[in-house]
């Protein structure tokens, strides 16, 4: 595992001067990925928070080659880059080894770009796909996606008097991608940089398509103070809402087991998007969320053997 001293060598691959909100986890994710990947890396972005804040013409925060095509194309456009890489390398027109990495939010991954990602994984392109998952369409002003958790208030799943927030549980992306037979899929968290950077290294060293879904807390959308981003992330893992695990060639491995029982309620309480659940008439939803978290955790433990 590389030390933070070593990781700091690549500090300038994604520069300051980007316009992300104060306390946004997105740039932390990008920085942690690039600190491992290094300068010989091409980034493919989908339309979304990180694309918008990092490349407002004539400025770019990227110190590596970068391409953005559209919202749903992080994987499909990178498929083309990868195809070009393969053929131009054969022809001797491109030298050296390059890392090809897609960065996309949960909207661009779980929803509108889902087909493109599925196709790219099935075809077996050699790239890493990183979903910085802030659990809603934050760029357009906090609308629900299929990654938004049960009960959360968003502007399209508002906490109303009849319907108190999102009705559905979130999709499990890692399971879906693992079912494609991808050689490496993992779930990560920016608060555990050691685990995440190890996973990035592993993914880049793996031939074929690899996917990492990393929870990226959003102060604005989740409604917590900007200094709590890492703490909110950490607690998502501690309460087992967001387990850290990886699936390598179909083999599941739990990477971190919380030492003590933390009810999901503690994590929900930190975030204003769940504030409406803490009333007598909505308490049952917290119970439901806890049951959902427990069910998924048990199922994960079974798979991890």
């Amino acid at each position: 595992m590389p030390s933070l001293k070593e990781l700091s060598k690549n500090a300038d691959l994604f520069t300051g001067g980007h316009r992300a909100c104060s306390g946004c986890a997105g740039p932390i994710v990008i920085k942690q990925v690039l600190s491992v990947a290094g300068p010989q890396t091409i980034a493919s972005l989908s339309t979304g928070c990180m694309e918008v804040v990092s490349t407002i013409y004539p400025y770019t925060a990227w110190n590596i080659p970068y391409i953005h095509v559209a919202f749903e194309t992080a994987a499909s456009a990178l498929s083309g880059v990868e195809a070009a890489y393969q053929v131009l390398r054969r022809k001797g027109k491109v030298k050296g080894k390059w890392n090809l990495i897609a960065f996309s939010g949960d909207g661009g991954t779980y929803d509108i770009g889902f087909q493109g990602l599925s196709g790219a994984v099935e075809r077996g392109h050699d790239f890493l796909y990183v979903c910085y998952n802030n659990e809603a369409y934050m760029n357009t002003g906090i609308q629900r996606s299929s990654a938004t958790p049960r009960g959360a208030h968003t502007t399209t799943s508002p906490a109303g008097t009849v319907i108190p927030g999102k009705k559905q549980f979130h999709k499990n992306l890692v399971e879906v991608i693992a079912a494609h037979g991808a050689p490496y899929v993992a779930q990560a968290i920016p608060s555990n940089w050691a685990d995440f950077t190890r996973k990035v290294r592993k993914a880049l060293d793996t031939e074929g398509p690899t996917v990492i879904d990393i929870l990226a807390p959003c102060p604005l959308g989740w409604r917590y103070p900007s200094n709590k981003t890492i703490e909110v992330a950490r607690l998502a893992v501690e309460c087992k809402f967001w387990p850290l695990y990886e699936v390598e060639n179909g083999k599941y491995k739990l990477n971190y087991r919380p030492r003590k029982e933390v009810p999901v309620e503690e994590w929900l309480r930190l975030q204003g998007r769940f504030a409406h659940l803490f009333t007598p008439e909505n308490e049952h939803i917290i119970k439901e969320i806890q049951e959902g978290v427990d069910r998924r955790w048990e199922s994960l433990l079974e798979k991890c053997g």
């Binding site: 391409i67 095509v69 559209a70 749903e72 499909s76 456009a77 195809a83 070009a84 131009l88």
Partner: peptide, 22 residues
């Protein structure tokens, strides 16, 4: 030859490949 899963991805991959100098 990239056997994409839709025309949308076909042209997206073409744009990506073109950007990569192909």
């Amino acid at each position: 030859f990239v056997t994409v899963e839709s025309e949308h991805s076909a042209i997206a991959a073409c744009i990506g490949a073109s950007g990569a100098g192909a």
